[in-house]
Design a protein around this nucleic acid. Structure first.
Lengths: 205, 205
DNA sequence: AATAAAAGTGAGTACTCACTCAATTTACTA
DNA sequence: TAGTAAATTGAGTGAGTACTCACTTTTATT
């Protein structure tokens, strides 16, 4: 649970993310992690008291920094540009940390401590960035008067399901989607749905 | 993998769903399943050759029937009614089978055979019902000319994320949503986003 | 009621795993 | 370079696990 300091610790953490995400926490042996990290099994226990400690250290502020990173400044840009940028940014970050995300989603089911850190530190923080943007628009009168929390999640859900489909369920074997087209469509649906009387604002015919 | 016939088999399957979903496949011992089912450990292996066999039998057509069940007939009803009914129906079914869904989502990551059955038999089938409805609307010219597969998933994502939030991530500790209001908002956003020039069709101000 | 077949049991078995620790290597200091 | 502390190693340990099988109980048949 402590901070990451040494190179060894980082090696072990990287290996753990990789193997845990492939085989699950309970399906992974400390021997495998050691092998993947290129250290002896005993070394793991010098840095992490137990296997579970190692799991929990994977959501340490350091490891997770990249997942919760802030978005660029958007002032002056139009909604469509902003929302497309948000999707692309989120997709990029998730893909760069695919193993970690996969792991956190799967193991959150079984480890309340992990779930709390995951939801509290990552999900909530990521949501709040978009939420403040949307709240602003609602106050301006540009967007309908809906609950910002609902609006954020609706958008996140529309986007997230395509990641789930492709990266988690292997859905491309069934239907594959062109990513740019999906982004275009999703943003169009969302903005037209969320704006007050858009009346012809849609780009799609 | 065979069909379910005896009462004992059903007992064991129900117990397995319950315990697997709480502790994960690898985190569950056959002893626990036996205890939960109220049978001796050996009895499990009379009906299922291995523990893995038991896992795979959980997506048998019989068990899964309820998850993939068809929706009522919608002809004549307006979109809003239809989409709200779909959400409510889906929510109900998922809640009735929460343990099974939780289990399938978590273990699909690690068992390709399970994932294939889950995606192929359940997800695809559920998607196709809605897809044909939306395709019709697109042909009619009521909805924009978007890819039906994208449209279905966008809707499913908007809905699904609230289930994920509440039932899987325990998100109510952070923000709780009024379900009816969410349904209203989601359907409103979606229909206005997906329809051709709705111009004032929105119910929300 | 007697017999056979089927269903159910749970202690035992062979094996695996998280974790330990005595021995060894590496890094550091004077 | 010798001496010491710190880091690393991996065989060993005990707790536990999936699965077996010799036995008991239940059910069906005559």
């Amino acid at each position: 649970m402590g901070e990451i300091t040494s190179k060894r610790q980082q090696q072990i953490i990287d290996a753990a993310i990789k193997v845990f995400s492939k085989k699950g926490y309970n399906g992974t042996t400390t021997k495998e992690i050691a092998k993947e990290a290129g250290v002896a099994e005993g070394t793991i226990f010098r840095y992490f008291r137990t296997k579970k400690d190692l799991l929990l250290s994977l959501v340490s502020p350091y490891v997770v920094r990249s997942l919760a990173d802030t978005l660029e400044e958007f002032s002056g840009k139009d909604d469509e540009t902003v929302f497309k940028a948000i999707i692309r940014n989120r997709l990029k970050i998730i893909r760069e940390n695919l193993d970690l995300v996969r792991l956190l989603l799967a193991e959150s089911q079984f480890h309340p401590e992990l779930r709390e850190q995951f939801v509290g530190k990552i999900v909530m923080q990521a949501a709040s960035i978009l939420e403040s943007y949307i709240s602003e628009k609602i106050k301006n009168g540009e967007f309908k008067d809906i609950e910002p929390g609902v609006a954020v999640r609706a958008f996140a859900g529309m986007t997230g399901i395509f990641v789930l489909w492709k990266e988690f369920l292997g859905g491309e074997k069934y239907i594959a989607f062109d990513e740019e087209k999906v982004i275009e469509t999703v943003v169009d649906i969302y903005l037209n749905g969320v704006r007050k009387r858009p009346c012809g604002g849609s780009e799609l015919e």
